[in-house]
């Protein structure tokens, strides 16, 4: 069969595949997941960018029917599209946790997620534990973190501190994490990060019917409306279980609350394409929201049992 080359960029690797012309998104996505050994596939997607707007490969649509640049290799980013409500309960496999850890760490360092200075230092210390293992002053000599990107620039610029002073700060926390294996340190990282207000929120610039600029946030718990000046605290929230229906028509988007006494919320987004993406994110997040409130599937039960065994075995080894 005729094929074309795709490049898949994950948080820590790049891979190339020969993709058959007739393949649907799902065929490529499954191949990537199999190659990575990833089974908790429902959090992830293959992302591409079109005219500065993020888009995700549709599972039931041919890869080549997407509005992607046809220049080979056709590039996709394998990324978490949906976030768990509780990382420790929901992320079972080590590879899943690791990919989330890398993605969230990048968002924090790139200042896509606001993180206060103290939390930034603590997170950095867990990232160091994950990478370097237990602190050993005879190995981890002064300057050992000099080449590492560990803190958001905003945090560094906030204080008059030298690189050595930061290293000292981070190391004093790092030394406290003795005994934590890589996967444990990464999970501790995620447990702190998931409490940051901007964690897991997809923001979109919108205008309400009066023309006021606002932000819409879509996350694991529902839809949120923000003042553009404050991405941390929503002005209004619509939890998934309080929404009856969501719909769009061209650039207009409508949220109908379950409670008929609460006003329908209508807004405009910049493009029809954006509304399609918002609806997609709503459906996916709501689906996971419902799944979490039911018993685990057999597959997940089995995965959790396996993970527990694996953890016990590792602990014995240590």
């Amino acid at each position: 069969p005729k094929t074309f080359t795709v490049r898949i960029v994950t948080m820590d690797a790049e891979m190339e595949f020969n993709c058959e012309m007739k393949w649907k998104g799902k065929d490529l996505f499954d191949l990537v997941c199999r190659t990575l050994g990833l089974r908790e596939t429902w959090f992830f997607g293959l992302q591409y960018t079109i005219k500065d707007t993020v888009a995700w490969l549709k599972m039931d649509k041919k890869v080549l029917d997407h509005d992607v640049s046809k220049e080979e290799p056709v590039t996709f980013h394998f990324l978490a599209k949906f976030y768990p409500e509780n990382a420790e309960e929901e992320l079972v496999q080590e590879i899943t946790q690791h990919l989330f850890f890398l993605q969230v760490k990048k968002q924090i360092l790139d200042e896509k997620i606001y993180c206060p200075p103290e939390a930034s230092v603590l997170l950095a210390s867990y990232a160091v534990q994950a990478k370097y293992g237990d602190y050993d002053p005879s190995v981890h000599k002064r300057g050992f973190l000099a080449q590492e990107e560990l803190l958001p620039k905003r945090v560094i610029n906030l204080y008059q501190m030298t690189q050595e002073m930061w290293e000292e700060r981070i190391t004093s926390w790092y030394a406290e994490h003795r005994g934590r294996a890589r996967d444990e340190a990464e999970m501790e990282y995620l447990k702190i990060a998931q409490d940051l207000e901007m964690y897991g929120v997809n923001y979109f610039a919108i205008r309400n019917k009066k023309g006021t600029e606002l932000l819409l946030g879509v996350d694991a718990l529902g839809l949120h409306i923000y003042d553009p000046e404050n991405r941390l605290t929503p002005k209004i929230s619509f939890p998934w279980n309080e929404i009856r229906n969501i719909s769009y028509s061209d650039k207009e988007f409508t949220i109908k609350p379950l409670d008929k006494k609460i006003d329908v919320f209508k807004f405009n987004s910049s493009k029809l394409r954006v509304n399609k993406l918002i609806l997609q994110l709503c459906i996916g997040n709501h689906d996971l929201f419902m799944r979490r409130r039911k018993a685990d599937s057999l597959e997940v039960q089995q995965m959790k049992a396996q993970a527990r065994e694996e953890k016990a075995r590792k602990q014995m080894e240590r």
Binding site: N245, S247, N275, H286, M290
Partner: peptide
């Protein structure tokens, strides 16, 4: 025309989704 018109609209009923899952 219908296809194009449909392409401009989308709707999701959370209530129906919940019912179908139970």
């Amino acid at each position: 025309y219908f296809a194009r018109k449909a392409n401009h609209k989308g709707s999701y009923s959370l209530v129906d989704a919940l019912k179908s899952k139970v």
